[in-house]
Write a protein that binds this DNA or RNA. Structure first.
Lengths: 211, 211
DNA sequence: CGGTAAATCATACGGAGGTGTAGGGCCGGC
DNA sequence: GCCGGCCCTACACCTCCGTATGATTTACCG
């Protein structure tokens, strides 16, 4: 299931920049501190790339041929790509930077920037990405377990974690108490919960609303 | 306890700006849409004011006599004043705006700005403030209940919501099971929990770490 | 058509939780 | 010094939970 907990694949920096000199410069900078790098000349090139779920972050020029860096940010959100974004520009203004930050950018750097500023931003981005991935992985495991529950079991799950007694659940669902016990037992087993407290915490993590 | 749930006091806009003309202009703008306004010529003037816990938001010039707008932002954090901040400036640059946004500013407006842009920012700020206040109020009620628990009861609270059985709690604390039951019953009563599920959710909201 | 899984219900037993009653020791405030 | 709050314990009683055993019906799949 998980390959190396705590030691995920080395993160990759995806550089999207149309100026070849800057592109190569950034690639060299990142490789010098032992990071994977992939470069793209436009947003479309990046989006055409298969598999966007590798750990890392994006370093994107605002002024790009085709989709601009800011529109690219929105597009990534819509596509469910949650990679942190660092924007950079040679000719930006304040409203542009504010819009980028509101949209969740990690940083917005003005060219020419110091290498160290970019590396700091990348370090922050990679940290955030790792944290997001860890959360997502935990949620995914939970969702997978939840998916193995039958419809009835899911109902019982919801009602039991709302604090209802077995007999109350039985009444609401038109079942006998003994049947509820069977479902409840199955829920505990399938969700790997060893106590009701565990189960309630799982329900919270799954955002299953109590009654 | 709560005065008018859902209808809190009308929010106040705290304007911190050294230019008197702009200050008056903003005050008029906000009053025209039925908002309370208080004006200050410097950060120190605002901080000298008693009682910072009224609902609303701050509209602050970056270049101020004494403490700058950005340092003011940091100072507010340190002092535990969680009012949303909108910054404005006549002579700003991108790094300044990025720093402000990273520090949590709602917006960063360049003078001269359109009235509508300021009103939009203020509307967003007031919304966020209201949401934060609602969370804080709920947490405060919980904390108040939690404070009425004796030391023993707090321990039992933690262990029980970790999923331990009464006898396990008794073993860990060197008590008899019957005593744990007494404490547990007191915890349920004092925390207004009607089921173990409730209690676990309260423990989560209070960030009481399970064992 | 036979196998399998899900859902349902029943009986029964032991363990766990919840409550009420009762009592004793300790400490700090009035 | 007395009272109240907190902490601890015990016994009794009832309810609730968990599980095992056994069984029936329905539905789907190869």
């Amino acid at each position: 299931m998980q390959a190396h907990a705590g030691l995920p694949a080395r993160p990759t920096i995806f550089v999207v920049e149309d100026d070849q000199a800057i592109r190569q410069g950034l690639a060299g900078l990142f490789r010098s501190i032992d990071l994977n790098v992939e470069v793209f000349a436009s947003a479309a090139d990046f989006l055409a790339r298969p598999q966007h779920d590798r750990p890392g972050c994006l370093v994107v020029d605002v002024r790009l041929p085709g989709l601009s860096g800011l529109d690219f940010q929105v597009r990534l959100q819509d596509m469910g790509i949650r990679l942190p974004v660092i924007l950079m520009t040679g000719h930006g203004d304040i409203p542009m930077s504010v819009r980028a930050m509101k949209a969740g950018a990690i940083d917005f750097l003005v060219k020419p920037f110091r290498d160290q500023d970019m590396l700091d931003a990348v370090a922050t981005a990679i940290e955030r990405d790792a944290a997001l991935r860890q959360q997502a992985a935990a949620r995914e495991t939970l969702r997978a377990n939840y998916a193995t529950l039958s419809a009835r079991e899911q109902e019982v799950f919801r009602l039991v974690t709302s604090g209802l007694m077995n007999k109350q659940v039985a009444g609401l669902l038109g079942l006998s108490e003994i049947t509820v016990k069977v479902h409840r037992s199955n829920v505990m087993r399938k969700m790997n919960a060893r106590s009701l407290a565990d189960l309630v915490r799982l329900a919270e993590a799954l955002e299953i609303a109590p009654t």
